[in-house]
Structure formats: C-alpha cells, structure tokens
Design a protein around this nucleic acid. Structure first.
Length: 406
DNA sequence: TCTGGGGTCCTAGGACCC
DNA sequence: TCTGGGGTCCTAGGACCC
C-alpha cells in the first residue's frame, strides 16, 4: 500500500522584516515596514553612527514612514505594523496614513537572498523534495520522508521549524495537507511560527468557510466577479456545479475552480525548472515624457538592456524574443515584442531589437515605467543550430534617437 | 498622495503551412 | 464558386503570484 500523500507549504514569517530585525534587534516589537524606493536609509544611519555597532543605534534615529517621500510599495510589515492595517503590496503613502510612526527600511536583497539560500538548504537536508516558490516560500513533499507521516506531518514540520530557528533565529509557518493547494491555505492558519495539519476529510470544516480569495489562483478580479455572482466563501463555489462554473468562467478556469473548491489538486512538487524569461524594469521617480525627457529615457533604456544582458550572461542563458513594457501615467500598460532569428545575450542586439519595439508604441502620454524582457530562453551551450551573428554596433555607439526628437 | 519588480501561464487572433 | 481543417508560431494583453 502506498503511503498517503503529505505535502507541506512553508512560509517564512515576515521574512524581509525579520531579516532586518536580526541586524537591528533594538527594533523588535516596534512597527517596522520594509519597502520603498532605492534610498538606502540604513547606509545613511551606518554613516551617522559609524562609531557604534548597528545594534546600538537608538530606535529614535531610524527614519519614519511619515517622513517618507516617493513611490513604492510595502514589501513586508512586522506584526506590530500589521496591527495598524499595513500590509504587503500597499502603497507607501497609504501605509504612512495608517501608521505614520512605523520605521521604514529599504529592502536588502543580498541579505535576503543569503538567508533564503540558508533556510532552503536546511530544509533539503531534512526533506530533499523541495519546490522553490520565491525567496520566502517552498513546498516540501513529506510523503516518502522518514517520519513524514507521523501525526499527519506535524512531527517533521516541528523538526524543520526547529532546525531553521536554531540556525538562523528566524521563524516560519508550515501547513501540511494532502496537496499543495490545501497546504498553502493551511500554512496561513497559525501564523506566525505555527503548524497546521489538514486532512482530506477536513475540507468542509476548515476550507469551505474561507473567503474565495484564499484560494491560490483566485485574485482580485475573480473575487469581484464571484461576489457579483453572490459567491463569497469557498463552500459557495463548491456548491455550484462544474458546468455552471465553466459557463461563467470558461472551460479551463471554471473546471479548475470547481476542483479547487473541493480541495482537489494533483500537481507534483517540482524540484527543478528552467527559466522562461528574464526582465528588468524600473518605475521613475517622476513621470517622464518621451520628448521632453528623451535623453534621460534613452539612458535608462540602455541601462535596462545592459542589465538584462548581464543577467543572461551571468546565468548562462540566451534568448530569442526581445520585449519592452511601458506603463503610462494612467497606469495603463503596453507591451511589444520581437522574435529574432537567433538567440542572443548581447546588450547591443537586445537594445536594437527593443528599440524596434519602441517604435511601434504611441509615446504621446507620459511614462511611469519602462521595462525590457528577453524570452524564449535556451542554455547558451545547448543551442540547436548556432548561426553566425551579424556584427552589432556597440551600445555606446548607438544614438538615443529611439525616443522621438522635439 | 495611489499602485515595485520579478516572474508564470493563459487566451485569442492572424499568418503561414500542409 | 465554394470552401476544408489542423498545427505551429508570433504578438498583445491580462490575471495572478511572491
């Protein structure tokens, strides 16, 4: 008899903020938010207090949300900050209204990545089948791990929690369930530092009362549509026939939604995957106009192409579809792309193709964001038929005329 | 005073080929 | 004058996730 499938979802608690609190333990218990623009506020602090250890910088010296100016969103809020209704993905300005006294720190990606690699390595030592879901989340297949079935997975979950905490002083929350879909919901039940075990027979009591938005895959748009159809809980969806859901949401999405509401999900835990695309994008400090700010835009554009080319080269990939993304001042987004005959990781070729794309967009409105993407990736060493690439002009030699002149 | 940056997947129309 | 389907690739947009 094969063992019962047990899948865990592990989510690090307030990860970005918790990593900062390791550096600044004096902020523990205070409302702290991570996010915002590129300003490295903490470097400023380090300069000002160069004579003392980071942990000795007084909390009063840290910058406050009420003094924050500029664009950006909250990446993570500590639990004390969440008391005020501040949460991730919230605009900084809105957060400042809710909790002006919160301390703001910028994201330190290097530090976050370091801890991300660390906690994942600890998990893999205990349970090898781990699926990456970004810096702070993973799925883990407990099914065949020794002890993975004990108490429905609780014993192994506790062991992993303890191993991560012993090594990093960070906490996480874990849900263990028959599949990824339910495990994901379960990991939220006892946050922070919690464990939640859900069995197949618990779906009606533990899952059906939840709002539809708790299903991973039902976002803001679908939520609105479901509400208009008077469906508010997952149980409300489960009470509909698959056909009714298909009629209202389309074949694929409707059928999936029906399965999801009944807790059915047979997706495997995928331990390895190849990237599909790589991109770089930036939101400007102020909206830029294609004509009036063309010098500045041209420089940003070249920089984005250079950085995405560096990303490709560093990771050993080449791509064949070059695309751009524009966001206008009204937040409307446009994309254009162009598929080349040959794969490339050359910044000059990428910039030329991206420039072609740019010519196909009406640049009358002001822009708030510009992005460059390379898709149809292949490993640089594993190209089907390496074709000779025509000599490309060096990036620096190209004009900035891609944006229209006055 | 709105709304980051990095991704994946899906849909749908048109081109093009057999 | 009528009149196919099927398959694949390209492109644009959009939903969703972390």
């Amino acid at each position: 008899m094969s063992p019962i499938r047990r899948i865990a979802h592990l989510d690090m608690d307030a990860f970005f903020a918790s990593v900062e609190l390791l550096r600044y333990p004096q902020l523990k218990g205070l409302p702290v938010v991570i996010g915002g623009g590129q300003r490295t506020v903490d470097e400023m602090l380090r300069d000002r207090f160069a004579d003392r250890p980071l942990a000795k910088i007084p909390p009063e010296a840290f910058p406050l949300l009420k003094d924050y100016v500029g664009r950006g969103v909250i990446t993570t809020a500590t639990y004390p900050a969440r008391q005020f209704g501040v949460g991730s993905a919230m605009g900084m300005m809105k957060a400042a209204r809710l909790c002006p006294q919160a301390i703001v720190l910028p994201v330190d990606f290097d530090e976050v990545r370091k801890y991300s690699r660390g906690f994942k390595a600890i998990i893999r030592d205990i349970a090898p089948l781990v699926e990456d879901r970004g810096v702070d989340e993973v799925y883990i297949d407990f099914t065949e791990v020794p002890g993975g079935q004990r108490e429905g997975g609780r014993v192994l979950a506790r062991l992993i929690q303890k191993a991560i905490h012993d090594s990093t002083a960070l906490t996480c929350s874990i849900g263990v369930a028959p599949n990824k879909l339910i495990a994901k919901m379960a990991s939220e039940f006892n946050k922070p530092n919690g464990i939640s075990i859900v069995h197949e027979q618990d779906v009606q009591t533990k899952i059906w009362p939840l709002p539809v938005r708790k299903i991973n895959g039902i976002g803001p748009k679908s939520e609105v549509k479901l509400h208009k159809l008077h469906l508010h809980t997952i149980g409300d969806i489960a009470a509909q026939s698959a056909q009714w859901l298909i009629d209202n949401f389309g074949q694929a999405y409707g059928a999936w939604m029906h399965d999801a509401a009944w807790g059915r999900d047979d997706r495997p835990v995928v331990t390895e995957s190849e990237p599909v695309s790589m991109s770089r994008e930036t939101t400007f400090d102020r909206d830029l106009h294609a004509v009036r700010d063309r010098q500045e835009l041209g420089a940003i554009f070249t920089d984005l192409c250079t950085r995405v080319a560096e990303d490709l080269q560093r990771t050993g990939y080449v791509g064949r579809t070059i695309g751009i993304k524009l966001r206008f001042d009204d937040f409307q987004t446009a994309t254009r792309d162009l598929t080349l005959d040959d794969h490339t990781a050359d910044p000059a070729i990428i910039r030329r193709a991206a420039g072609q794309c740019l010519k196909r967009v009406d640049l009358g409105r002001k822009l708030r964001l510009l992005g460059v993407r390379v898709g149809k990736l292949a490993k640089a060493g594993e190209l089907p038929a390496p074709a000779a690439t025509p000599a490309a002009p060096h990036v620096a030699e190209q004009t900035l005329d891609l944006f229209p002149g006055p």
